[in-house]
């Protein structure tokens, strides 16, 4: 599987010292017969994330794990752009470092792409076999409601807009990323909506989104406001 293709896995990090080694271990465990590299874009984490990555480079090799650090937090979108510059694969996977995206799904992404020749394969919580784990009922309702609202306004043709576990053909990601302007949660949504509008072939695979192993994630009023502003922006501009 994936003998002729090379996959560059871009992982933006900030204070992920506790998770990054687990993630790298699990990626290597689940992608045994695949040519891949992991590009870690660290935004100057003060917790020693980069030291752990350097230790991992000693174990797995600097050609398999690339540390492409930046001096400070510069945003998710630019982190992908930065990682993309150093990607040598013809496919790019983007995923979170906090293990909310389990590497065990990577083979199914690759398989789906090979079966369908899709330009994008996106992980979704909202198809059979997908779901979330470790969320409160309120958070599930908020997430599902936000997704329904976005589906109503944007008609994107994919079931999970805010997920960020995706596989892109490199040329497609380069094209889409150059036309996106949003930040934060909305950035992921803008990427998939613009890809849909541009007519790229998008496929979905079910994933289970799991709350992070170490650390905490937040969803507050300001995130919801930003989300609504992003929705309005996408409604007008796409």
């Amino acid at each position: 599987m994936g003998e002729r293709n090379k996959y560059s896995i871009i992982v933006p990090t900030y204070n992920e010292r506790l998770n990054i080694a687990l993630l790298v271990y699990l990626v290597f465990k689940h992608l045994r017969d695949v040519d891949f590299e992991i590009i870690i874009v660290d935004d100057g984490s003060p917790d020693g994330t980069q030291e752990v990555v350097k230790q991992l480079q000693q174990v797995y090799g600097e050609d398999r794990i690339l540390l492409r650090a930046r001096p400070k937090k510069l945003g998710l979108g630019t982190a992908y752009c930065h990682g993309l510059k150093h990607a040598s694969g013809n496919f790019v996977v983007i995923m979170d470092a906090d293990l909310s995206h389990h590497p065990k799904y990577l083979p199914s992404f690759i398989k789906k792409q090979m079966e369908t020749d899709a330009s994008i394969v996106t992980g979704t919580r909202y198809v059979k076999g997908g779901g979330v784990h470790g969320w409160t009922l309120m958070r599930k309702l908020t997430s599902r409601g936000a997704n329904v609202l976005a589906q109503t306004l944007l008609w994107p043709g994919v079931s999970d807009l805010t997920g960020s576990f995706r596989l892109y053909r490199k040329s497609v990601l380069e094209d889409i990323i150059s036309s996106c302007f949003s930040k934060g949660y909305v950035f992921q949504m803008e990427m998939i909506v613009r890809a849909s509008r541009k007519g790229y072939h998008i496929e979905e695979v079910p994933i289970t989104f799991v709350d992070r192993v170490y650390g905490s994630s937040k969803l507050g009023g300001s995130e919801i406001v930003e989300y609504l502003k992003g929705l309005a922006y996408l409604l007008v501009t796409t």
Partner: peptide, 10 residues
């Protein structure tokens, strides 16, 4: 990873 000198988890 621990025997290989990598800091893992807590």
């Amino acid at each position: 990873l621990k025997p290989r000198g990598v800091g893992v988890g807590s």
